[in-house]
């Protein structure tokens, strides 16, 4: 799979804003950002309301994903382009869902909302109307999702990549620094995990670094890509971005995202935790 199959730039999107078979989807950490403005003809997916099970901690099942995409007017043969704020954290998270449920053609807008804004490109308030579809999802692909026991079993044997900031990894912070720090879980990281913050994958404007730079990054950090890898962060969205880099850009098929991440692992009774660098 080539980079252009999974990643498009702003000019590519700009040229297809009126193409009915290209669906632009905004997914933001700040779920109200879309209301302020968005790329013309973009629809919204709300990562909290639309992608999470409303009762238990898990994400929506196959039927739920089918209902969501049908209601959003997304067809199985549409090209879906995801973008969002925070350097595409939650757009990457949604991308991972689309792959998990087998969507054929899904891509990220390189740089996401930030690059679009910094380029002073058009943003509008009007929301598009797309006719509902009959979307059919595939059963969830468990080969790209890790659970807590997978992580415990991986300690000291597989690659564990903690993509949080150095202060979260060492235990000095419990959450990204734009969020309040009151959390119930213990600070620290999974023993044997390497701290390769997600931000090392991206330039300041949110665009991804080149494949060569990305490959060099993981090699320099001592990650043997021939060995299976599990990426995690706090709730699984930043690690979805690293999963995108490893699995989609660098074409490493043996990479999973642990969406339970630190809010689950750091709350487990009896599991090993390391502090410090």
């Amino acid at each position: 799979m080539s980079r252009s199959d999974v990643l498009v730039d702003a000019d590519w999107v700009q040229a297809r804003l009126d193409d009915p078979k290209v669906v632009i989807v905004e997914v933001d950490e700040d779920t109200a950002a879309y209301d302020k403005n968005h790329i013309r003809n973009a629809v919204r997916i709300d990562w909290k309301k639309d992608l999470q099970d409303p009762v238990r901690r898990d994400f929506i099942d196959q039927a739920g994903f089918e209902a969501l995409l049908s209601a959003k007017g997304i067809a199985n043969d549409d090209t879906v382009v995801l973008y969002g704020g925070n350097n595409n954290w939650f757009a990457s998270y949604a991308y991972w869902y689309f792959k998990l449920y087998g969507h054929g053609d899904v891509r990220l807008l390189d740089g996401g909302r930030k690059k679009w804004e910094l380029d002073s490109r058009e943003l509008v308030v009007e929301q598009p109307q797309r006719a509902a579809t009959q979307y059919t999802a595939q059963p969830a692909d468990s080969s790209i999702r890790a659970f807590r026991d997978d992580v415990i079993d991986a300690i000291g044997t597989l690659n564990l990549v903690d993509v949080r900031s150095p202060d979260e990894f060492s235990g000095k912070l419990l959450a990204p620094a734009h969020l309040p720090q009151e959390q119930s879980q213990r600070p620290g990281h999974v023993p044997s995990a390497k701290n390769i913050p997600w931000a090392k994958n991206a330039n300041d404007d949110g665009t991804f670094k080149s494949d060569d730079e990305l490959k060099a990054l993981y090699e320099a950090e001592g990650v043997d890509l021939a060995t299976d890898t599990i990426a995690y962060c706090r709730i699984g969205e930043r690690s979805a971005l690293t999963w995108f880099v490893l699995h989609e850009l660098l074409d490493q098929q043996n990479v999973k995202n642990y969406d339970g991440s630190w809010t689950e692992y750091g709350s487990l009774v009896g599991v090993p935790i390391e502090l410090g660098n």
């Binding site: 930030k114 910094l118 900031s165 734009h178 931000a199």
Partner: peptide, 16 residues
């Protein structure tokens, strides 16, 4: 956007 970088210049957070 405003980015917060630690004493080693590592990205820590960013907000619009």
């Amino acid at each position: 956007y405003v980015r917060l970088l630690d004493e080693n210049g590592e990205f820590t957070a960013e907000v619009p």
